[in-house]
Write a protein that binds this DNA or RNA. Sequence first.
DNA 1: ATAGGCGCCTGCTGGC
DNA 2: TGCCAGCAGGCGCCTA
Length: 290
Amino acid sequence: MPELPEVETIVRDLRPLLVGRRFVSVRQASKHRLRRAWDKAWPALLAGRTVEAISRRGKWIVLHLDDGSFLVVHLGMTGQFTVVASSTPPPDHLHLVFNLDDGVHQLRFRDIRRFGSVTRLTGQAELEEFFAASGLGPEPFDLNAKAWRQSLAGTTRPIKSVLLDQCVVAGVGNIYADEALFVAVLHPLRRGCDLTPAEADRLRKAIVKVLTTAIEKRGSSIRNYIGGSGLAGGYQEEFRVYSRKGQPCPRCGTPIAHLRLSGRSAHYCPKCQPKPRARTRISKARHEKE
DNA sequence: ATAGGCGCCTGCTGGC
DNA sequence: TGCCAGCAGGCGCCTA
């Protein structure tokens, strides 16, 4: 569920609530396993640890602990990572509880669909290896213009699929991919290698713009997303194409169209974001023959 | 080697 | 009203 803006909002919310706090005790609140198995030895290793910093990498939340270890958290589609009063009745689908040293709050990991995970890594080397193993790409705000153009030029995949590939750029998901393509005025089925350098630049800037605005609005709350302090986001009010099938395009009024691409929905304006023409495919085929 | 399809889960919605 | 298919913000494994 949560994409970069939602994860960034959670990290910013959690920072003042968690940094400097110590875990008094940690317990597993559910027998169900998450995407990555939770090691039974971890609660004992985490008890007594103080949170020194919280950061984000792509859609991952990273808790930096005082013994040099890390907790890396992924929220999958429905994960929630919040600090609440310990007296708050435990919700369903609660998986992990971290009791804090102020005696009245706890950090909770809740995940309805269990596509999320919480993993303990022993140190910097393991953390780096963890992200390297998944091939996690650069942060969208740090994209090198030349490298970005080259990674698009080197693939025949539809641009929408490229945006969802965390190895190319980290943190973009289905909502912000559709929104960025609308802002960049590019059809989701345009192939990476068919984009002109100017279009590639336009897309890179559109990603940054869309994500920046979404962070300012605390992300998008559709169903399950809440920030680290339990507060919802507001960017869903700003959607120009995502989940707006049949509604008027904010630029030209044409009904927003919808297609399925590798099992996921893509929303776009059929007039503003014209379909890739057959000619470009032929020219590409010729190019490959040469 | 790459890219698409499917499975993992639960919950909600819309159509019949 | 009730049922059920289809769909949902993600990712990793399998296959072609």
